[in-house]
Design a binder for these strands. Sequence first.
DNA 1: CGGATTTGACCACG
DNA 2: CGTGGTCAAATCCG
Length: 354
Amino acid sequence: MEGGGWSWEQRTLVNELIQGMEFAKQLSFHLEGSSSVENAEILVQRILSSYEKALLILNWSGSVGHQPLQAAAVTAPVAAAATGSGSGVPGSPLSTNGSPRSEDFDGTKDHQAPINASKKRKTMPRWTDQVKVSSENGLEGPIDDGYSWRKYGQKDILGAKYPRSYYRCTYRNTQNCWAIKQVQRSDEDPTIFEVTYRGQHSCSFGQQQTVATPPAASPEKKEQIKHNFSSSNQQQPPPGEALLNLQKGLKVDTRDLDKREAVPFAFPSTYECQNSNFSQSFLSPATPEPNYYHVSPFVNSSGWAQTLQHSDSDLAEILSAQTSATSSPMLDLDFQLEPFELVPSFSYAPGYFS
DNA sequence: CGGATTTGACCACG
DNA sequence: CGTGGTCAAATCCG
């Protein structure tokens, strides 16, 4: 019942379903209006993706024998993810050209491998999640999204009040995982962090088994989901991603103005939907950390937006890369959801999963 | 001691 | 050139 008591699957499932509904609504909106076919297709993709994930979860927990998944309970500060960032991630398509096999790699540094690397980077799908962190006293802490990231830079952005930090997957070198993300704290609302992800994780354990998902279980998953209709939006995804992506959640990071250190978050138990009485359980105490916050992940249904973005040039590259790869339909053109378009009249009823 | 973070310098792009 | 992104040496932390 209480949000906090839900298992990861349940929450994710709900999230996915909600999201699917959201997208469906948007789609209908688009259909009525004179929207482009592209947008409609994108929405359809996302809807499918959401449902796919939802089904996956059901299927998964069903076959595996409903895992209790107490991941979070486990220990680490770096707990697991909670929601499905659902839309944010997985759906994002096109990896670069083909698959991240070992071919075009050269362990050289970015700088030195301009051609491959840069191109790769450019074609990487990019999406942004807006994560809100509500803290008790005004300080925020970083959130963990289940993946392990290594910070490689921080930069003051012109006009932005807070610096932007750059992270890359910890397994970049060991597993050629090129996923990166950057976190930018919002100017107006310091409790909001924009987390921009680029590239999908190709590392086998995107998230160090933090999440309860029994290691054994996830591998299977991948098999099942593999490509179906999703084949249209992701060519040969490195194995085992779907599920992992599902779990990826949010990550927020905060470094304080005063260069205060960010504290890793342990979290999962909290969901807070702006417009519902859903949730909000609080982070359980039990942590030695001075600051703990409670995070509410981008639940779009309640107004947190999430966007996919591409620049024109990116598009061009994607398109070309794409043709050579598979003739799959474009997935994310410059798809952008206006906040107001997002906020739907949707509100869920309190007894969701009771 | 090894891995992660910090931080100024460097690089590429517009 | 200015700006954003990345590198890498120094430093920090467990």
